[in-house]
Design a protein around this nucleic acid. Structure first.
Lengths: 239, 239
DNA sequence: TCAAAAGTGTTTTTTTTACACCCATGG
DNA sequence: CCATGGGTGTAAAAAAAACACTTTTGA
C-alpha cells in the first residue's frame, strides 16, 4: 500500500450558487461566459483555486470579485468530481451556496461579468453539471431553512414580518397563517423591532425589524420548524 | 477573465470516517500507517482518486478494500482544502462518512490494514486534519440522526427495539423513555416485527425487528425528532 | 367610510411527555 | 416466586393549527 506513488494531478475549481430575493421571488445569479470554450453559454460564477488558498478562500474571492461584497453568507454544498463532468479537462469542483441581499448587490457594477438574476425555477440551460449543482442547492436551502433562520440572510438590513413571510411562502410555494407565522418568528427572539414602519404595502403600515446579530449568531442552529409538513420537503433531500 | 490559463494541479484524495456500533458504544475505525511518511501514526482510511473515477467511486473502492463489504451506507461530509492541511504535499481531500454493521465487518480480514475500532470519544491522535474530519462527522451524525433513521444502518440485519434505543442513548448520551421511544420508532412504520426473540438481555425476551427496506428507502427523509431538545445538539453543527 | 393589510386573541387539535402498570420468564 | 427487563395504557402538558376579531389609514 504505497500511498505516495505517482498520482494524477487535476484541476481544482469552485462554483457558487448565489441566491437572492427581490421581494417577489427567489432568484439565482448567473453569468454569461465571455470567453471560449462555450462562450455565450450561461454558467455559475466560478474560478480556479490558487496554490496559496483553500476552496473557501477561492469562493470568497470569486464572490467579492463579482459582487464587491464582503461577509456574504456562504457554505459548502458538495464536491462534484465525476471524471466526465467537465468536458474540456478533468476538473473537480467544490460548490458553495451563497445568500445575498439583492439590494446591496444592485449598487454594484455587474457589467464586467454579464451577470443576470433569474427566477429560480426559470433559468437558462447551464454548462457542465451546473444544473445539478443548482438543484442540489435548492433542495438544501429548502431543507435547511425549515430548521434554521438562514433566509434572513436574503433580506435587507431592515424588513417587515410580512416581507419575511412572503419570502418563506415563495421558497416553499405555500401559504402560511400570518398570526402563527409572526408568533413563531418572534418567539425565536432573533429579531429586534424598530421604531419606523414600512407604509408601502399597506395603509396601516408594518413595523420594521432587524436581526439581533448577537442572538442570531448564538442561536443560528435553533430549530424553527416553519414548514407545515417537513416530510414533503425533505422527501428528496440530501442535506 | 481568462479561465483556462495555466492552473496549478494538485493531488486529490478521499478519507473515510467509518462508524460502527458494538452494542455498547459508538466506534470509529482507524488504521495505523504502515508506510512512510508518518509510519506508525493513526489515520482515517483513505486513498487517492484515480483518473477514471469520481471521489464517490474512490471512497467505495477504499471501503471495499478495507472491509470487503459492498453497499455500505456512505455520504459525502465535506471537502478539506487548506493549503497547509497535508504537510507532505498539497492535497485536497473529500471526506466521506460511512456507517457499517460492525458484526459483518468482524468476519472480514483486517490484518492487512492494521485497522482497529476505537471508542468514538477515546481515540489516538490522528494525522493531518483527520481529527477535524472526525469531529465534523460526529456532529453531523448526531444532527442527522435526530431527523432521519440512519442509525439503523449501524445495527445488524435483525435487532430489538431496546438495542436500537441503547444505540440512540449512546449517540446522544442521554436516556429516553422506553415507551415513548418504542412508539415513536414503530410509528414510522419503517420496521417489520419478526417472529423470534432475543433472549440474551432479558428473561421475557425482546422481539427482533428488521428494516422494511422498501419503506426505508422511500421514507428515509422522514423526520423523526427523537431527541428531546434539538437546540442542544444542533448548537455546534454545520450540516 | 370602507377596503385591505397588520396584528392580537382564543379555541381546537395534535403531539409530546411523564409515569403507572401489566407481562413473561429464568434463576 | 420474584426480580428484571419488555411492552402497553393513559392522563397531563405543551405545541401547533385554525380562525375570529380588532386596528390603522389612504383612497
Amino acid at each position: 500500500m504505497k500511498r505516495y506513488s505517482q498520482q494524477s494531478r487535476l484541476l481544482f475549481a469552485v462554483d457558487c450558487i448565489i441566491f437572492g430575493f427581490d421581494g417577489q421571488e427567489l432568484k439565482l445569479l448567473l453569468i454569461q461566459r465571455g470567453f471560449e470554450p462555450f462562450k455565450g453559454q450561461w454558467s455559475l460564477v466560478g474560478g480556479f483555486v490558487q496554490e496559496s488558498e483553500s476552496a473557501e478562500d477561492a469562493a470568497s474571492r470569486v464572490l467579492k470579485d463579482l459582487t464587491g461584497l464582503d461577509g456574504i453568507y456562504m457554505e459548502q454544498l458538495h464536491t462534484f468530481s465525476s471524471p466526465s463532468r467537465d468536458t474540456v479537462e478533468r476538473t473537480v469542483s467544490v460548490a458553495y451556496t451563497a445568500l445575498i441581499d439583492i439590494q446591496k448587490y444592485k449598487q454594484q457594477l455587474n457589467e464586467d461579468f454579464h451577470a443576470v438574476w433569474f427566477p429560480i425555477n426559470h433559468h437558462p440551460e447551464l454548462i457542465f453539471d451546473h444544473k445539478q449543482m443548482v438543484d442540489q442547492a435548492k433542495e438544501k436551502l429548502r431543507y435547511k431553512a425549515a430548521l434554521h433562520p438562514l433566509l434572513l440572510e436574503l433580506l435587507p438590513g431592515k424588513f417587515t414580518i410580512p416581507q419575511l413571510q412572503h419570502l418563506y411562502e415563495s421558497v416553499y410555494n405555500a401559504a402560511f397563517d400570518k398570526g402563527n407565522f409572526s408568533r413563531k418568528i418572534l418567539s425565536t427572539k432573533l429579531l429586534v423591532k424598530l421604531a419606523d414602519k414600512d407604509k408601502l404595502s399597506s395603509k396601516k403600515g408594518a413595523f420594521y425589524y432587524k436581526i439581533d446579530r448577537k442572538k442570531y449568531n448564538a442561536n443560528f442552529h435553533a430549530f424553527l420548524n416553519f414548514v407545515p409538513d417537513p416530510h414533503v420537503l425533505a422527501a428528496t433531500n440530501g442535506v
